[in-house]
């Protein structure tokens, strides 16, 4: 019996002592977007290998979740850096400010969003307007918004195949979905005078609603899953990040959007219309407290990482133009505070 009492006492003691262990931290902690995750982890690994600092811990929490953790306060229990596949929002910036956080913004490059299908099928050539007509919940017909009547691609345009519309895409919780809606659906909605004439909220509702009658299938956050489903079903189109198309070039082909193919050069030059910027944000208050933050930023913004032939490019990051890269590197390493 005494043995058991001892064990219980040990456990109780352990639980009470543990908070003291939380104080010291000599390792950078990064949270945020799952899109930036592959790049952030690659830099973290190289940084850990070459700098002599501990390898940073990178969590994939999504852009919004990362911001929430990041802006919660200053102190070792809060993360030092957050990744985002969109720019920080005004509200998030204010929350950070209220908690005494000064932010440095670093734009690291671009990510293309592609529509792709299996190589067993002929390639698609689409425009943003056609994508909108295929996927919006309500589209204008004869001046009025009605539930999307298009069943076949050929209902939209006779140049498209006479096949059922079937698109696999990410769920609304995903940053890829946000970007797709903003870059494609909103942009296309602007082109319809009936929708453009609506007031701000109604426009948003019309532009952001994706149809729920089976033509658009929410296929989960895992892009590999979409890739596998496309292989199995040659009639379907999928929406996902460029790096997954790049890795699966033997099975999938990207649809051209507005006549531009989703290729590395076209996305880098901005010619391909569906690409977004990727960012990370640094908490200045932690520079000096947590060792290695400055060096990590320097590694991320070095040419061997994010340059035209850097290792991030191999991971599918589309680099900033050379001039932007230079100015961004200077502002990042100088820890220029962000103001909005």
């Amino acid at each position: 019996m005494s043995k058991r009492t001892l064990a219980v006492a040990a456990v109780a003691g352990f639980v009470m002592v543990a908070p003291a262990l939380a104080e010291a931290r000599d390792q950078i902690r990064i949270v945020g977007s799952s899109t930036v995750f592959p790049f952030s982890t690659a830099v973290a690994e190289n940084f850990g290998r070459t700098s002599g600092f501990k390898t940073p811990v990178v969590e994939s929490t999504g852009s919004g979740g990362g911001m929430k953790l990041f802006c919660a306060g200053v102190g070792t229990e809060h993360p030092d850096i957050t990744n985002a596949s969109r720019r920080i929002k005004q509200s998030e910036f204010e929350m950070c400010g209220e908690n005494g956080i000064t932010i440095t913004e670093v734009k690291i490059g671009f990510d293309g969003i592609v529509l792709a299908n299996s190589k067993a099928h002929s390639p698609f050539a689409l425009t943003k307007k056609q994508i909108f007509l295929a996927l919006a919940k309500e589209i204008p017909v004869d001046g009025k918004l009605v539930a999307n009547p298009n069943k076949l691609w050929s209902d939209i345009d006779l140049s498209l195949p006479a096949e059922r519309i079937e698109v696999l895409g990410p769920p609304p919780t995903s940053g890829t979905r946000d970007a797709f809606v903003e870059l494609v659906m909103e942009a296309a909605a602007e082109e319809f005078p009936e929708i453009k004439a609506l007031d701000k909220n109604a426009f948003k509702a019309a532009a952001h609603s994706v149809r729920e009658d089976g033509a658009f299938v929410e296929a989960g956050e895992n892009d590999n899953l979409i890739v596998q489903k496309l292989e199995a079903n040659p009639n379907a189109l999928g929406i996902f990040g460029f790096s997954f198309l790049d890795q699966n070039a033997d099975k999938l082909q990207g649809a051209t959007v507005g006549g531009v193919a989703p290729e590395f050069e076209n996305i880098a030059s901005g010619e391909y219309g569906i690409s977004r910027s990727l960012y990370f944000y640094v908490k200045q208050e932690h520079v000096g407290t947590i060792p290695g933050i400055k060096e990590f930023v320097a590694e991320f913004t070095s040419d061997k990482a994010w340059g035209d032939e850097g290792y991030l490019m191999e991971k599918g990051l589309i680099p900033l133009p050379t001039g932007d890269r230079k100015s961004m590197m200077e502002s990042a390493n100088g820890m220029a505070p962000l103001s909005m």
Partner: peptide
């Protein structure tokens, strides 16, 4: 609780 993370060490 943050155990879904990229950890090398």
């Amino acid at each position: 609780i943050g155990m879904v993370a990229f950890i090398v060490d």
